[in-house]
Amino acid sequence: MNTKFRRTRDASGLPARASGARDFVTVDDSGDFSYHRSEEELMAAFEYVGEATCIIDRSGSSYRLVLDSNRHMVLGPALGPVEFHWLRHAWLDAQKAHPDEHRLRRFYPATRGEVVTALFEILALERGTPPARGAWSLDIAGSASLPSNLEEIDRRLAQQKPLERIHVKDPFGHIYRPARYHKHWYLPAAAGSILYVEVPAPFTVH
């Protein structure tokens, strides 16, 4: 796969797209998920038809890559709604397999619409794609700021210890408490990547 970065609320706040343009979420043949801002970006990310095991649009419809009559790889027709239970478990498996890449941990989705919406929002935010509206908010012991993206939040929290009095709100209004993820038990407490675990409202985050 050519890129590391690879729904349903129509007004999700993601960047406005050109008329007729669509964005997609894909699951590749390793089981990982990616976000693509357009069909052109999607096609450029894959080298052969079986590399994308599932492609999803914002309506929750699924697609596959196929070869046209000239044996050029193209996006095939819609195959119907993506299977909810498979998608939810595939996403949970990807989070477990790639904890350093998928660090926004939202509540367990109860419906296909919830998991599709969450995938489009989370993967775009992880990629650093700025939403059309809304902003990140970081509250450290009552002191609020507006970082530009998740990478900036990571930098600000890198030397923070402990993390208990910190809350983060994403541009879609979901509130998280940061927690350090340790790959190995012997690493120091401040080492490891930071996961952002969703917590119930209300927390006063500006």
Rank of each mutant, 00 (worst) to 15 (best):
S12T: 04
K161G: 08
A190K: 14
W91V: 15
R177N: 03
F5Y: 12
P130W: 12
G128T: 01
T3V: 09
T3R: 12
P109Y: 10
I166L: 04
L150N: 04
T53D: 03
Y186P: 00
S34F: 06
A11R: 09
D68L: 11
K161S: 15
F172K: 05
E198I: 03
L75V: 06
G31Y: 04
W91K: 12
S59H: 05
G80I: 07
A179G: 01
P131K: 05
D10C: 00
H98W: 15
A21G: 00
F46R: 10
D100F: 03
T8R: 08
Y196D: 13
F24T: 04
L104K: 06
R7D: 10
A45G: 13
M1L: 08
H36A: 12
I175S: 09
W91A: 13
F107E: 14
A18E: 15
L42S: 06
G13L: 13
L157W: 08
I122N: 14
H85C: 04
V66T: 14
P188K: 13
E83T: 01
R22N: 07
V49N: 03
G192I: 02
R180N: 07
H89R: 14
T204I: 06
G192P: 07
E83F: 04
E198F: 07
R112Q: 14
K183V: 02
I153R: 07
I175E: 13
K96V: 08
E41C: 00
R9H: 10
E151A: 13
A94E: 10
G142C: 07
K161N: 10
A45C: 15
T3H: 10
E101Q: 07
D10T: 00
I122F: 03
P77W: 04
H102K: 07
E121W: 05
L163H: 02
I175G: 00
G134E: 11
H98R: 15
H206N: 10
P178N: 06
E47C: 02
R127T: 02
A18N: 04
P15F: 06
R37G: 13
G60P: 05
N70A: 12
R9W: 12
Y108W: 12
D170F: 01
R58K: 14
T53H: 01
A11E: 15
V115N: 03
L92E: 15
A21I: 03
R71C: 08
W185H: 11
D154Y: 01
A97W: 00
Y35L: 10
R133C: 08
D10N: 01
R71V: 04
